[in-house]
Design a protein around this nucleic acid. Structure first.
Lengths: 209, 209
DNA sequence: CTGATTTCGTACCGCACGGTACAGAATAGA
DNA sequence: TCTATTCTGTACCGTGCGGTACGAAATCAG
């Protein structure tokens, strides 16, 4: 039971924070996104976050804890379209929104190119190994969520009953991860949309749902 | 004109090399493949290559030059199936061999999981920036070679004339790069083959070529 | 043998890394 | 104002990084 600060009782004695943790996370996200976990140094981070090193450690723990907080921040912010897409009424709408939304995010001028889940720590030194595994886990988790959504779609009848939800979810995951690499290589939004059109043409949805 | 040593005149005076550069490159490849350019330290490399640091610098130049030599070694060795696949007689055979060959390589027990071109330096620190750009260039080069092969296939009639070679080549590149991320996440060979089946089902080849 | 040449192994360089000690500044409650 | 508490900024720690100086060892030509 380690409840440092309750929202309903903001009675902070002592010197107040001189920065907005939310903004600081935003800026840390930008650095990790561009350089990956290993490539982002503490100097890069503190400079971008406009705080000193001890403030970072007091507010976020060490580098790895900061990265995990940044991952949550990313999931709730720039990557929130993924979770939202699963709520579309049909499997085709889910996949459409998932892919187009991802393509938009990957090529937005407001973000670095690519996906933090993919680029954050793909191949890295030993010191980043736990972070690498964390990202693998998150990628597989997203894939599993899509698989369950496709299974539901089969039961609801808008996906052909002989479709394989596991393979289809992995196929879409591959498209997303491949698009991420493409975005990091300089692919444009319209180029990615052209690929999505190819993917959707063969989507095994029933009727025209 | 810097011809250090001609093959036909191996008259090396001085102390002979105590290691096989080819084997050493093999071992360096393994390290870079698993850890990426930034994540592989010189200590990792010299330990794996079983040579001392000055020997490495004398034989291969600095770390970046070694990495570029390793890239060539990779292209001619584990990744040689890519170039070979382009010589298949039809576009469908090209893509089949390209994808299945890649899936085999990505999940071979003899290699680290994933593709060096993708994982070598996707997001990294500033010091690896030129290496990152080199890998982007190689990825785009491979994609361009496939595009040209598909254009030839249209002229030869085994690919539907309204197919878009640029988009199709990018689509296959995305599949390959996505499979690389999947392999790094632990996907098995049969799982990747399942995805390839999905891709090939909608390949726009004429007749059953 | 001697001498020229090239590689080998140790031991080291400056530097940037992630992480922290510590003293002073800013607030709240008394 | 005084005290307790928390945050800020400087200055530093040990470590590992990429890269190298240098003398010993190994070969060949003569």
């Amino acid at each position: 039971m380690k409840s440092k600060r309750h929202k309903e009782l903001p009675k902070p004695t002592g010197r107040p924070l001189s920065f907005d943790p939310h903004k600081a996370l935003d800026r840390a996200l930008d650095v990790f996104w561009r350089k990956g976990y290993d490539g982002a140094s503490l100097s890069d981070l503190t400079k971008a976050m406009r705080i000193n090193r001890p403030s970072l450690y007091a507010a976020f723990g060490d580098k790895e804890k900061l990265f995990r907080k940044v991952l949550d921040h990313y999931a709730e912010g720039p990557a929130s379209h993924s979770r939202a897409a699963l709520q579309e009424p049909t499997s085709r709408a889910v996949v459409e929104r998932l892919l187009y939304g991802t393509a938009d995010m990957l090529t937005s001028d407001r973000n670095p190119r690519g996906c933090l889940w993919v680029q954050g720590a793909l191949a890295c030194g030993d010191s980043a190994d736990s972070v690498r595994k964390e990202l693998i886990s998150r990628r597989l988790g997203g894939e599993a969520a899509l698989r369950q959504r496709l299974q539901r779609a089969i039961m609801e009848g808008d996906l052909l009953p002989d479709a394989n939800p596991t393979s289809l979810a992995r196929y879409i995951a591959i498209i997303i991860q491949g698009m991420s690499v493409q975005a990091a290589s300089g692919a444009t939004r319209s180029q990615l949309r052209g690929i999505i059109d190819i993917v959707l043409e063969s989507w095994p949805s029933r009727r025209n749902t």
